[in-house]
Design a protein around this nucleic acid. Structure first.
Lengths: 123, 123
DNA sequence: TAGAAACCTGACATTGACGTCAGAGGTAGC
DNA sequence: GCTACCTCTGACGTCAATGTCAGGTTTCTA
């Protein structure tokens, strides 16, 4: 498929896909005229990249890990990187769960005070 | 306490604390000469701000929510904002958990293949 | 075979939470 | 009162993942 189709299929912009290629994260075959063509599994790859970005992992680190994610194998150095990111992800989850509890308690309190007619901010 | 002490106490840079004030997130009293002075509970406030930033919430949104987090009350509009952020946080947690599973499976596979002497990348 | 729509490269713009530097004034221990 | 360190404002720099625009080529559709 061409880049536009991959973009709509994944919900990622064309610009972003070109950027991924620039970073070495997403390969493409080129037609005679230079247009990019992607295999069907490219969408999965894009989702994987997005997932890592969402975890705050940089392009360079993703580049390091990607082949190992695909093949399921890793050198000791890459394994260390993977474990580092793993613990970072665990920390992030814990922080977000704390944030969630915080938000829940505020929401619960707010709903109650709204029931009793005491909104905030006043006005 | 002055800004430097608050910075070391919270692990947040002096620059960041000034930025929080600039955004209206963190108040301070000023001495005769213009230096900032913070009450003891400022550290807790800073941690709260950091927590929200970590959840991908913008300064403007934090500014909207903060008084309600403190007082435990919220107007209907703010309540909607809170709920929006809540579901965003839930999504983030789910995504991170998926990422965690992904990393774990790669790590498990990598450890196994390393045991059997097949590292990746080769070399 | 037009003409629209998609694609190309290249390059500058954006956003947000800070980093960093300059130049000047404040504060605390000796 | 000297010295070292802290703080002030203001302003420009940074970083990373895009947005956006220009100017040109390719591909699809009527």
């Amino acid at each position: 498929m061409r880049i536009g189709e991959l973009a709509t299929k994944t919900g990622v912009s064309v610009r972003a896909l070109r950027y991924y290629e620039e970073q070495g994260l997403l390969a493409s075959e080129r037609s005679e005229s230079g247009q990019r063509h992607y295999p069907d599994n490219a969408a999965g790859r894009v989702h994987l990249i997005q997932q890592f970005y969402a975890a705050g992992i940089s392009s360079a680190s993703i580049l390091e890990m990607l082949p190992c994610v695909v093949t399921g194998e890793a050198s000791p150095q890459v394994l260390a990187t993977l474990r580092g990111h793993r613990s970072s992800v665990v920390r992030q989850i814990e922080e977000l769960q704390a944030t969630l509890r915080q938000l829940d308690s505020v929401i619960a309190g707010a709903v109650k005070s709204h029931d009793s007619g005491v909104p905030c901010p006043p006005g």
